[in-house]
Design a protein around this nucleic acid. Structure first.
Lengths: 358, 358
DNA sequence: TTGACATATGTAACTAGTTTCATCAACCTC
DNA sequence: GAGGTTGATGAAACTAGTTACATATGTCAA
């Protein structure tokens, strides 16, 4: 299919900058072969060539070979656009993530892309900067350019977005979030449980005065769910929440705040590992020793969390598997028109060195 | 343009799973409007509608309004596929990066995507796992599906890849690498200079026994250039190189090796910040104090590097700007057919707390 | 009043595929 | 040997746009 685009544009601009204005005739920009060319070369009709491409079994063996030879000789690749126009299949889907600047999404997308390509689907990535208006806008342009499906993050979206999905009925899967009741299928972990796992661990170790550090709750239902999970757990102690930017810097900033507190909590629960790493660094800068002076738990379990000093106790979220499941589910939805079942992926606590009994 | 795909597929599967098998007639899957529908509704010809879309100035004012009303009423969005088929423009480009799992590429892609969308271009991201064969394969499928341009990393590629680009003449820009002589335009920093900046800094501080930690050199010309830059600098001391995986874990592994050395170097130069952070953590795990016992420099200057303990001295590489420049250059190349000039972006040393005079 | 020209719009051909329907030959059955 | 069935292929219509060319008005100068 290569070069639909470029060759055509080229042909329409004969004064192309690449051609030197010499006397010799233009180097004959060998036009890309199309179905008709192949048909002519093979001495068959276009319908037959199309059949060779799409249902080769119905074509007689020697005809098949003739056509295939012609295809090879002319280096024919069917135009994706022309195919899309009547099959309605563009073979790409879009993924909307808040940011690429967080290893958790990068890992998710890597798995998603890998698995989608098994289904012959390309992935267009769009970042929303965690803003619902940008999300709706980018979703619209993805659908406008022909995305066959969408992968989105979380269940909270703008009315414009919901309207768009409802009108267009584009298969859309929600990730990083599990809720069997959601009108759109969700594939993710239970954020409330994940947070509870972390809190329970701290509680079991005897911590009673806990700082909860999290990213912006505005427009982020994953964070809200995690916070709600914490509140739902009957915990016999104090929880103080700190909201900050999801970045190492954001975590470090909170660490500084915590260090200055007259009454310092005895444990910190970070709702994301990126923030946790930042907090850890921030504490270290103040010579506050983890876990001796303060325990720390994170959520996400990034590979880096195993390398920190001390290694971070964290709740593992299976983002790579989530990417694979989402890819399979979306591909299946697109091909069969059957909406997939929601899938709940387990989260589990990985105890490492950043937590200690009081 | 929304829903080309899905509606068509839907129409071809009237037994769609979403429709309940009730008695009432199917909810009339309101077919997406096309040019002809709009023309009929507005009482004009398809050519006029097309003109309204593409060169509205040549259309009489009240005709224009009539058509625009019809477009709005029918919620008409032109099919991208149909447009692509005769304009040859698919309005998307592909980016091939080794991995998403390194903040440096994530940041680059974020900037690239942001700027491309200003040019009305979408971005398809493909990861190559730093393998040239995968790169060539994915490049081919990107071009096959109609990518109008490609953004790639580094100047070393497989023969299949070069052949592909030459045959198809798809505009392709090399990033993370600067070489005005390269047949394909490069937009990036001078890797040799960047590495030299780091080494010179260590040399100026009096370090003479330096460990150089870097990622795989196989198939990675950026790393090779950096190493070559180091060798080219007449440095009156010892350089020992350590190759490892580009990850925090990889860095930590090397740190352990270094810690076990009977004669420990007095400084570490990491050719990437991700590795540097890993090394820093690895040293810390062994209670080796930076910079008192050993100095450290990195290259990349990730935001995290400012937060580590101690904050990492690093050579800043302007990846966001690189993304923007690449987007502009590629968009310009696609629209004007004029190959852009190579662009060299400056790198500069940011001195922080991880380096100290001997 | 007529010719010249510009402006606005429509007709139909074109892009590159897929798909329906018709045709024709070959084989089998009665 | 006529009739029915199957298999392979082709002609032409179809997808949804763009665009070259033709045509119909309108304005102005001669």
């Amino acid at each position: 299919m290569k070069l639909v685009t470029y060759v055509n544009t080229f042909l329409k601009n004969p004064q192309n900058g690449r051609l030197k204005p010499t006397m010799q005739k233009a180097p004959e920009p060998k036009k890309r072969a199309n179905l008709r060319d192949v048909a002519k070369a093979a001495g068959v009709s276009v319908a037959t060539v199309s059949r060779v491409l799409n249902e080769p079994t119905v074509v007689k063996k020697d005809t098949l070979e003739k056509v295939q030879t012609a295809i090879a000789e002319l280096k024919f690749v069917p135009s994706a656009a022309a195919r899309a126009i009547n099959s309605g299949r563009t073979r790409f889907v879009g993924a909307l993530v808040p940011t690429l600047d967080n290893a958790i999404f990068a890992r998710f997308l890597a798995a998603l892309e890998r698995k989608l390509s098994d289904h012959q689907l390309s992935l267009i990535v769009a970042t929303t900067e965690a803003r619902l208006d940008i999300e709706a806008e980018k979703a619209k342009s993805l659908i406008d350019i022909g995305a066959e499906g969408l992968i989105i993050t979380g269940a909270t979206h703008s009315p414009a977005f919901h309207d768009l999905i409802e009108r267009t009925m584009v298969p859309t899967i929600i990730t990083s979030f599990f809720d069997p009741e959601n009108p759109l299928p969700t594939i993710g972990y239970d954020n409330a449980t994940a947070a509870q796992l972390a809190l329970q661990h701290l509680a079991d170790l005897g911590h009673r005065d806990i700082a909860v550090v999290h990213g912006p709750v505005h427009d982020n239902d994953r964070t809200r769910e995690r916070l709600a999970g914490l509140k739902a757990l009957s915990f016999a102690g104090n929880l103080a929440t700190f909201e900050t930017e999801i970045s190492h810097q954001g975590g470090a900033d909170v660490a500084k705040q915590l260090g200055n507190l007259r009454h310092r909590p005895d444990a910190i629960l970070c709702l994301s590992d990126v923030v946790a790493l930042g907090v850890l660094l921030g504490l270290q800068a103040q010579k506050i020793v983890v876990p001796d002076q303060i325990s720390m738990v994170g959520i996400d379990d990034l590979p880096t969390s195993a390398v920190t000093v001390p290694p971070l106790t964290s709740v593992h979220l299976p983002v790579s598997r989530m990417g694979e499941c989402a890819a399979d589910a979306l591909a299946h939805w697109i091909t069969t028109q059957q909406e997939p079942k929601p899938e709940k992926l387990g989260a589990r606590l990985i105890v490492r060195g950043s937590t200690k009994e009081v």
